[in-house]
């Protein structure tokens, strides 16, 4: 392999490997802490301003989280019902 080919190959490898160093959010999905949405039940919801982006973000986060848990529970129930039907 001549010098020019080595240089070209090195440049390609370096340019593609740079993206591997980026902080990828998916790396943290499984090991990250889950949102403590249950604690919201103890809060006075009448004092929450629904136009506040912070409250909207919390609702979006917990809505997603609750829906996700709900889907899990629904699927568990369905599979249990299916098993009992069989």
């Amino acid at each position: 392999m001549n010098t020019r080919s080595t240089l070209l190959l090195s440049l390609i490898v370096l340019s593609t490997s740079t993206t591997a160093f980026a902080h990828d959010p998916s790396e943290h999905k499984n090991d990250s802490e889950q949102p403590n949405c249950e604690a919201l039940n103890t809060m006075d919801h009448t004092k929450m301003d629904v136009n506040d982006p912070i409250i909207q973000a919390i609702m979006e986060q917990c809505g997603t989280h609750h829906n996700h848990e709900q889907n899990h529970q629904d699927k568990s129930k369905k599979s249990a019902v299916n098993k009992s039907d069989q």
Binding site: P35, L40, I58
Partner: peptide, 10 residues
């Protein structure tokens, strides 16, 4: 804690 938890919706 709630806002910074990495979302698992996907």
């Amino acid at each position: 804690q709630i806002i910074t938890a990495r979302r698992t919706s996907n």
